[in-house]
Design a protein around this nucleic acid. Structure first.
Length: 828
DNA sequence: TAATTCGCCCCGCACG
DNA sequence: CGTGCGGGGCGAA
């Protein structure tokens, strides 16, 4: 009898050029090794065309002579844009490059007659075999079989309630549930970090030139390995005996040992290893005469990606700078940061080892500690909170159907695109041709408020000025995804082909929506939303078992990432399923719902003070009327309106997206005020923070009165400090990001650009994404990079103006003003 | 290869 | 020199 097959988790699929077929990379949790399984199905690259075989022969005979041509077949597909079945010719190739990506590739021959020709082959393979990365499989006779996943009874019951009336929908929902319920493996992995000698402290050497020796390579792994490999250098004297440190007389020996360790792990983690550590190691090894087979690192120049032979490489830098991850999964905790120090500081509470000199000047012990900490932090980013990040990655792989290397290197639009393509293939839908889609669905109905935008977005209600007590905020639970689900929005259903659907108009637009067919996007988003709102968010709270509860929380966070971006991608021109009517129908219905609810609230005698996109601020609502509003929305508009939060008071400055309130749990909630923005100097931030503390203690009118007089005192104190120049230069620094290359600021020269150019003149390299620190000074350009400035040059008047605006947003709401507070101060 | 619009604030620049 | 508009950055949703 054969041994019981053990589960292998599919982590990645690649095309192997030498083998001429796809190779699956699976993780065997028992042996903790990566298993590579070449395709056994004979699957080949292909694309589709609307030209018949006869037309192809007649009009494109050269196609059949192409070196990569294999054969053609006629296949039937469902065309969602036209709501009809169509016959397409499948052009099968010998290798992916012949389909596209090489000169004279077959898709170039057919141009606009080529469908599904821009899909990367390894993705195409995943779709066609219905494989789900992140899921467990067993190998049986060379083929992979999905491991049966049990869905808990309570989840099945909930799905019964939601979809029980439609057998097919219920079946699909169960399939989705398996992705969320399957166990998540703990993957053996090692974090790697290197340090490089450099004679110029301010320059990071280019990895593809790798001009200087590697002096340290550190490892921190899940199996307990902590190791620093150090290069002996005569100038550092006799090396001390240190725990976890190995010394090497030559860089060659050091690299050999480093490669040996790297090759022992199925998964290698780095922080910026794509752009630095791994290519540096590779090029360095080449320079030292290593043979190709002795170097376990490959470099993909087109993708700027470093790969580990026989393993997988995740560059956490690329994953953590992903905006969706920052905002939704990690609540913007590390919004300032792009560096390991800032991200680990925010998420782990631990930063890098501080070095007061350059790496090249550090002694052995210092260098070892510094380097090992980097490897440790990199590893810990995947380890904290019971491997939260690893679990999120695996869950998002299952939702997006992307392998681990693709998922961690690409943004949300790629994730959603891949998920939708997979869904198309699963159903036998033809994936629309971009030019076709744009021609049929490329036009909008509305004009945006902001110049340069494509369509009208959300409504924001003009707030009053002043303090209001006892405010309840109601909001629609994930408004846009709800709209997409409920109104059947999808690229093929908005402005569908049916005459009889044209009467189903979207309020305020000329677009109509299909009544005959369920939209593919509507269904997918609907599932993800329902799973999050009705199942996993609830289970993440109610589940008794802490391990399962933790898992449910990961599931709901992973779902949140997809749900929140599912509307935006349709308004993004770079998205292959770009469909502005879907995006503008979504916002139009959002506006409709908010306005209808507002009108109903007013009819009920509920005063509405403010609202933004999906929320309404109700002033002192009676519980009965509130309940009436919620049930009316549920009954008449058929969406969920929830009580989101309640404030003891809210101070509105009279500006939109700008208010401060005291929540019923005693925390201060400040939105949009300049004192909180990250480019605001610390001096002003600290002032605003103190005001927040003050307001946090003021629960009622009387306490608030006291707080206001204390606030006036505080304002005056800060004002005087500025006047008397009793402020540290560092506290006056504006930190502004350079969002594009220095040379491309041609229309204007903003202040941070002036400062950046000063730095450049002083030989400092300035790049896109750098945060420029500058202060405002008298005379000259009006600004100086902080490195070049002295405290006595500072322009106090400018800072007083900044203090004024920061203050006014709060003071005006409280019924006083900056002038009133500092009035008379001029006499000092 | 890249999710959206709305809104606030400061500044730079052109125009009168 | 004042004014208005657009560029630029950052946040709210």
């Amino acid at each position: 009898m054969a041994a019981a097959a053990r589960p292998l988790y599919l982590l990645e699929v690649e095309y192997d050029g030498k083998l001429g077929r796809a190779v699956l990379k699976l993780y065997d949790a028992e042996s903790q090794k990566l298993v590579e399984v070449p395709d056994a199905s004979g699957h080949k690259p292909y694309f589709l065309t609307d030209l018949s075989p006869e037309e192809l022969l007649r009009e494109h005979p050269e196609l059949f002579k192409h070196g990569g041509f294999d054969h053609i077949e006629v296949v039937e597909k469902y065309d969602p844009l036209r709501d009809e079945n169509v016959l397409m010719t499948k052009v099968v190739a010998r290798d992916p490059l012949s389909v596209g990506g090489s000169r004279g590739a077959m898709r170039e021959v057919l141009k606009d007659h080529a469908w599904e020709a821009r899909i990367r082959y390894h993705h195409c393979y995943i779709y066609d075999l219905g494989l789900v990365p992140g899921m467990p499989y067993v190998e049986s006779n060379g083929a992979l079989k999905a491991v049966e996943v049990e869905v808990p009874e309570n989840v099945v019951q909930e799905l019964e309630k939601l979809y029980g009336s439609d057998e097919e929908l219920f079946r699909r929902a169960l399939e989705w549930a398996k992705l969320f319920q399957a166990p998540v493996p703990r993957i053996k992995r090692v974090a790697v970090d290197i340090e490089v000698y450099s004679p110029e402290p301010n320059r990071v050497p280019r990895p593809l030139e790798a001009p200087y020796p590697v002096v340290a390579v550190s490892f921190w792994a899940s199996d307990g390995l902590r190791r620093v490999l150090l290069l002996r250098r005569p100038e550092l004297g006799e090396p001390p005996k240190l725990d976890d440190v190995e010394y090497f007389a030559s860089e060659r020996e050091l690299l050999r040992r480093a490669f040996e360790i790297i090759s022992q792990y199925p998964l290698v983690l780095t922080f910026n290893g794509d752009a630095f550590d791994l290519p540096y190691l590779r090029v360095r090894a080449q320079k030292l005469g290593f043979a190709e087979e002795e170097i376990p690192i490959e470099w993909r120049p087109g993708a700027d990606k470093a790969q580990v032979k026989g393993g997988l490489h995740v560059d956490l830098y690329r994953f953590f700078i992903n905006r969706s991850m920052k905002v939704y999964a990690f609540g913007n905790k590390y919004r300032e940061g792009r560096s390991l120090d800032e991200i680990s500081g925010a998420l782990l509470g631990v930063g890098k080892v501080k070095l007061d000199k350059h790496v090249s000047e550090a002694g052995y012990e210092e260098l070892a500690r510094y380097s090992l900490r980097d490897a440790e932090l990199t590893f810990m980013l995947t380890q904290f909170n019971d491997e939260l990040v690893m679990k999120l990655i695996v869950l998002m792989m299952r939702i997006s159907k992307l392998g681990i290397e693709d998922l961690t290197r690409h943004n949300i639009s790629t994730w959603i695109r891949n998920l939708l393509y997979f869904e198309h293939r699963r159903r036998g839908y033809l994936i629309p041709n971009e030019s076709d889609l744009k021609r049929l669905k490329g036009q909008t109905d509305t004009k945006a408020v902001i110049k340069g935008k494509k369509y009208l977005g959300a409504v924001v209600i003009d707030p009053p000025t002043g303090i209001f007590f006892n405010i309840t905020v109601v909001d629609f639970a994930s408004l846009y995804p709800s709209v997409v689900k409920k109104w059947n929005l999808s690229y093929e259903t908005v402005r569908c082909v049916h005459e009889e659907c044209r009467s189903a108009v979207i309020p305020g637009l000329s677009h109509w929506v299909c009544r005959k067919r369920r939209g593919i996007m509507s269904e997918v988003v609907g599932f993800l939303r329902d799973f999050r709102v009705y199942i996993y968010k609830k289970l993440a709270k109610s589940e008794k078992d802490p391990v399962r509860r933790g898992h449910y929380d990961v599931v709901q966070s992973a779902l949140k990432v997809f749900i929140n971006a599912s509307y935006g991608v349709f308004g993004a021109e770079t998205f292959p399923l770009y469909c502005p009517p879907v995006a503008e129908a979504t916002t139009a219905l959002g506006r409709y719902l908010l306005v209808q609810t507002l009108l109903r609230a007013l009819e009920l005698g509920l005063p509405v003070l403010y609202g933004d996109t999906d929320s309404l601020f109700l002033w002192n609502p009676s519980p009965q009327k509130l309940e009436e509003l919620v049930s009316w929305v549920s009954r008449e508009l058929q969406v969920d309106l929830d009580v989101d939060k309640s404030y003891r008071w809210v101070a509105f400055s009279g500006r939109k997206k700008n208010y401060v309130g005291l929540l019923s749990d005693g925390t201060v909630d400040a939105k949009g005020i300049v004192g909180k923005k990250r480019n605001t100097p610390e001096f002003i931030k600290s002032y605003v923070m103190q005001i927040m503390d003050l307001l946090g203690k003021a629960g009622d009118i009387e306490q608030l009165d006291n707080a206001i007089s204390e606030l006036k005192r505080l304002t005056h104190e800060y004002y005087s400090k500025l006047r008397r120049k009793e402020v540290l230069l560092n506290d006056l620094v504006f930190k502004v990001a350079l969002t594009k290359p220095l040379a491309s600021y041609v229309k204007n020269t903003p202040q941070h650009v002036k400062a950046a150019r000063q730095l450049q003149r002083h030989g400092v390299r300035v790049e896109v994404g750098d945060i420029i620190s500058f202060v405002k000074v008298r005379g000259g350009e009006g600004v100086k990079a902080v490195q070049l400035a002295r405290i006595d040059e500072v322009d106090s008047e400018k800072y007083i103006e900044h203090l004024r605006t920061a203050t006014e947003q709060i003071l005006e709401a409280l019924g006083t003003s900056f002038e009133e507070v500092v009035g008379g101060a001029q006499l000092m």
